[in-house]
Amino acid sequence: MSLQAWCAFIQASSVGTAIRESALVFPVIETAHVLAISLSVGLVLLFDLRLVSAALRAATPEQIVRGLKPWYLAGFAIMFATGGLLFWSEALRCYQSGAFRWKMAFLALAGLNAALFEMKYEGRIGAWSERIPGGAQAVGWCSLVCWAAVIALGRWTAYRLG
């Protein structure tokens, strides 16, 4: 089955249809998706801002990760769960939407950026106090740009799918 056919299939499924046609369920899921931006991106951006020395300078990056990780992981879990349900209800329309595709591309980039950071700096982040390595700063900037793009494209997708 092609990706497009698969999207058409899940959109037409009983769960997808139920979500899409309900007066309450879709708005509630969408609301949770938007509000959980604060718990996910809203917290992670504090770590990124620290990497570029623009916020929470009294804390080390390691302290920020340790202090916020459970919360932003919960936030991202909510984003993926609600996002998945929203997608389920409109999979084909999302597939056909350029804005949505770009959103997914930037989401993947954000994930890749985070994975590369883990691979390269895992275990070494504790040694940073004053100077943040250039590579880590680049990761911070990339993350900020990617998440801003994901949010913007998410709004644009909603606009298009109306």
Partner: peptide
């Protein structure tokens, strides 16, 4: 408006979670 929301609510959450003793406890 949404980008501002991420900034405003993200920073608000950080402070309020700290006040609740639920995050960033070593700060």
């Amino acid at each position: 408006h949404l980008l501002g929301l991420a900034l405003l609510l993200g920073t608000t959450l950080a402070v309020d979670l700290r006040l609740l003793g639920a995050a960033l406890r070593d700060q």
